[in-house]
Design a protein around this nucleic acid. Sequence first.
DNA 1: CTGCCGACGTAC
DNA 2: GACGTACGTCGGCAGT
Length: 921
Amino acid sequence: MTRLVLIDGSSYLYRAFHALPPLSNAQGEPTGALFGIVNMLRAHIKEQPEYIAFVVDASGPTFRDDLDPQYKANRPPMPDDLRAQIEPMMAIVQALGLPILRVPGVEADDVIGTLAVQGAAEGMTVTISTGDKDFAQLVRPGVTLVNTMSGSRLDGDPAVIEKFGVRADQIVDLLSLMGDTVDNIPGVEKCGPKTAAKWLNEYGTLDNVIANAGAIKGKIGDNLRAALPRLPLNRQLATIKTDVELDGGPATLALRERHVEDLRRLYARYGFNQALKELGGAGDEAAAGANDASLRNTAAGYARAAQPSDEAPDPSLSVKGDYETVQTRERLDAWIAMLDAADEFAFDTETDALDAMQANLVGLSFSTAPGNGCYIPVGHTYPGAPAQLDLHETLDALRPLLEGPKHRKLGQHGKYDLHVLRRHGIDVDGYADDTMLESFVWNSSATRHDMDSLAKRYLGYDTIKFEDVAGKGAKQIPFSEVAIDDATRYAAEDADITLRLHRVLSAKLAEIPTLERVYRTIEVPLVPVLARMEANGILIDAEELRRQSADLSRRMLAAQQKATELAGRTFNLDSPKQLQALLFDELKLPALVKTPTGQPSTNEEALEAIADQHELPRIILEYRGLAKLRSTYTDKLPDMINRDTGRVHTSYHQAGAATGRLSSNDPNLQNIPIRTDDGRRIRKAFIAPPGRKLVACDYSQIELRIMAHLSEDPALVRAFASGADIHRATAAEVFGKPLEEVSGNERRAAKAINFGLMYGMSAFGLAKQLDIGRGEAQDYIALYFSRYPGVRDFMERTREFAKANGYVETVFGRRLYLDNIHARNQGLRAGAERAAINAPMQGTAADIIKRAMIEIDGWIAGHAEKAKMLLQVHDELVFECDAGFVDTLIAEATRRMSAAAELRVPLVIDSGVGDNWDQAH
DNA sequence: CTGCCGACGTAC
DNA sequence: GACGTACGTCGGCAGT
């Protein structure tokens, strides 16, 4: 078979630049992207293809620019550090003997497409080497796609379908629907790969999707219809040409002799020592293809890496690793020696369950350098599983490394591993970096910070997925039953990739000192604090909840019977759809509120609006309230009690909310009811054990205080300084009367304005909130701004900052990027502006309480028997402590909470004590 | 039976 | 179109 390799130089250059750390040579010239490219090229040459070409874009416009002036219009200019690597790259490609193709007026994509089709037609085996997914459209018999950076390979329709959900011949249609933000091609709003694939699987082709656009329901259907005129153009832009006029065909692209002296000079200049070493046997073809020994887990590899004086290990971040399964005491000791010699290493644990408070350890993995890694199985139990090291012996041997602060430990979501290890007797110290948190601080707007997503985003690397080794759904097996070879590939890769990610992300954070500081002084120290709070858990009175459930059930049944009677038939009160049919079709009640999808809503507001016309809406509201409490709280919480501890252990998600807030899940203890009497009763079931008390300390009006601080509004700052009830003071200010003459209604209005402002509320929203006219609401707001002009200026400044910079920041420098701040879509843009106004306040509050938690945790460590921190609810901390320690705890905790930030207004803490959480308020 | 999404409602 | 940030439950539906 004759082989033809077509290398997409432009895509690799960009991807290598962004995936690799900003390396430089001894002269300070940037070499990161170059390094990735050279490794990729050497891998291809090693295969000795007969024909090969390195294809790059020529400068100047192409036919796509003629089709759409906006094409690639929002591409940022090439970074200088990347531009500087182009000439050296071309020189090395030349010296390696690769034909370079650069065709004016034609994009590299189209050159590659044309040559691929010609090559396949001539019977060649064609490999397209690229980092660009768009090329999947060219996969066909004889044409394979590879990405050496991620190791992925598409060699036929089954592989394409697995990756994209459609056949290769449908890829263009898929891309047309999705659009491409990088190339500035607008697709169907909200239509990603999943939706596009779904449509194509249903209708086959883009033309058929267009023909049936009327049949697609919902908002996404509207989006599709709105995009229809654009789609044919998208298809033209997305289609890679296969019929470009070229001077020569594939047969003119023979791999030439390499120029050893040039290579030697170039490799030396850019510090590619490994490649240089392989040149040693000049003319020896085998040497050129030898694997990079420093990346392999040979005994020699360990010895080299174990020498601190040795040069840094090969920093390639984009190759597949080579991993060892550690099954003997000798190999364990060898790894321990290597870990001990490293300043920092990445670790990961594998367990048999997702719940860190229940999971058993199945194995551990470690990595000390990109590409290396080991997996130490200690708990695989399937029939025929090979002998493994003893769990306790292994942990004891690793204990000095893990429990000492000497080595910097890196993890991805390490809080989980800290829990697992603690429950197996290892108290980790020196947990120094967490890639999930690095990613979160770097860009909190990104929704996913899991390792698979980060590897893809920052390394262009496709990781082995959990389901690849353990299956999914009903067929999923616990990790303890995964074959050890599979487990090693998966688990050691986790540690390896964590380490590589850290190299990339820590370099990024270092570029922005405020972010680095948020990460280093807030997020990283918070990890063990949260782990301790989660481990503490809170005691639940299950009997009390059962009684409440029974009471709720009784009242639900009564409501249900009444509802059936009123409706004249049975129906499911839990079904908005059935409710909608009953209320608006059968009973002909007016549908005054619509859901976001345009359906008549049956939500609280809608039912309240028609409650004076029929008895049923009121009954449904009654039922809803009861059902919510029972299903979400009184029935569920008793099930969440941990069998071993007898307590409920929530899990705090540290990278969950873009503003920097924590979130809580399994169960969510940050939304336990408090506003209604029925709901509030649930808090009576959160209790302290005999002889102990629950203490709750909360920041009084912290976000409004932050608004006063940020806006520097004199009247608002003065109001807080005076210690007055802030809503009353606002009412007095706005309505122009003494504090004591403010009516209840005026205070309520002022409170609504205060809160509404922080959320970017409009007059429309305020009117709805207060059930007043829109004009009246507008008057209130105008009056408010005339009294607090600093607040209006602050809001305007914040919007302007967001528009100019694309992000807003907290007092401590945490950033929130606002992707939609320049959106064409008015609704999206307005939403981003509201988020911009809210985030500095919500985010600063989050920073402050996190700082307080770290300080309090440090103090409480010396009193661990007497007091424990249990819960955080955004502006509140809940503790459990000995009855005789309450006063000390309140004094010490409130002092630290107040001192967590120096603002222009005081930070006031309210506190309460009780036998349960209700009393403690 | 499983997985996903919309609707709804709880918290701060 | 109109109030920011979360999470959990349920019904409904598509697919296995």
